[in-house]
Design a binder for these strands. Structure first.
Lengths: 204, 204
DNA sequence: GTTAGCATGTAAGGAGTTACATGATTTT
DNA sequence: AAAATCATGTAACTCCTTACATGCTAAC
């Protein structure tokens, strides 16, 4: 079976962040909110139960901070870290290049941990994501052409803007794919690449 | 009280579409998917219960299509139309300019029915939406500056792209606000393409 | 001394999806 | 005759949010 069905995006985010360093829940929330710049902030009502569940599943280990350590008495915090099983799980998840990794929900998290993903998997995920978006683009573009005349200017404008956003997204992915293929090490510059037509890359 | 809290976006979409013409459920789904070009398609498991609920609430009336009408026997379809109460509800919803109308969820639907919304409400909603996005922008930009050095290039790139997307969205809203203010009749066009750079791959 | 931020949790409920169930009609 | 599309619905489940509950610590 593919590693998992759904809603493992929070799990992956937690695993990925704890992979870098142990943390307690409150800090974890801030990091999740930061790494996945989503519109809504993750609520504790989601996070803490998820942590408990992962504890039970043996992916995490908890240990409380010593209270009377220094002169400053901080509140007892519960610091989580990955178990070996948690490491394995993380490795398994980032290696999953199936359609689940291209979904709107998961893609961002996957991308955030691309540094821990090997290049082949990165390419597959980027390309999968791109073709998913291209399908969507075709659907919406055709719809726009078909229905444009019977829609008012606001509805039309909304669709036009939607199309442009997806086009932008596709371009972004294409750039990333090119960068992966050429393994460009140079920092982000506006150096135009050599005028030779890049092989196999369709212009977007 | 403000008209309602949450999740009235499907309700608004249905009311808005039926406001234009009566429809049966299957057709309604396609229209909802079309008008709100969301990533996932609306499932019948959401739509039909919602319709039943609105029926019970007296917002909709149903009538089945006559079967033996013409030579062609189409399947019985249930056509929904707005009741007077439904019309009122729709009018109430589009007149609501509170924060709920600026949320990610609702904004698109509100915008889609801007033709049925008076200009003052349109301006308030556009401006509210813009300041919401600007807040988000500041948050994320500051975060990007703070954490940039301790993040790998993928995490950084993700945030950079996120920032750019929001900036784009803000510009779009600003254009719309200007158009409203000047009551420009011309459609909102992209700035005339400067002849300068070839539409090649931007650096990543 | 009071507000703001740190820190952890639970209970109830909302909004949606998937999978299931059924059957007619149209196209290939 | 099979496959695709039209058409309507229900049950179970998932993921998430809001609201509640509790208490410590830092800053004003």
């Amino acid at each position: 079976m593919p590693v998992g069905r759904r809603g493992e995006t929070l799990e992956l985010a937690v695993l990925g962040l704890l992979h870098e360093s142990p943390m307690h829940g409150y800090e974890l929330r801030k990091q999740v909110d930061s790494v996945l710049g989503r519109s809504r902030l993750l609520s504790y009502g989601s996070l803490y139960p998820a942590l408990k569940k992962m504890l039970r599943a043996g992916l995490l280990a908890e240990h409380t901070t010593p209270t009377g350590d220094g002169p400053v008495t901080r509140r007892q915090r519960i610091v989580y870290e990955l178990t070996p099983a948690g490491h394995e799980r993380f490795t398994g998840l980032v290696a999953d290049v199936g359609p689940a990794a291209w979904e709107d929900d998961s893609f961002d998290v996957r991308f955030a941990f691309f540094a821990r993903t090997d290049m082949e998997a990165r390419l597959r995920i980027l390309e999968g994501r791109r073709s998913r978006l291209e399908e969507r683009l075709h659907r919406v573009q055709q719809q726009l052409e078909r229905t444009q005349r019977q829609m008012d200017r606001y509805a039309t404008e909304l669709q036009r803007h939607g199309v442009e956003s997806v086009e932008r997204e596709v371009r972004w992915l294409s750039d990333l794919i090119n960068a992966e293929r050429h393994d460009v090490r140079e920092p982000v510059t506006d150096q135009p690449p050599p005028p030779a037509p890049p092989p196999g890359v369709q212009s977007v």
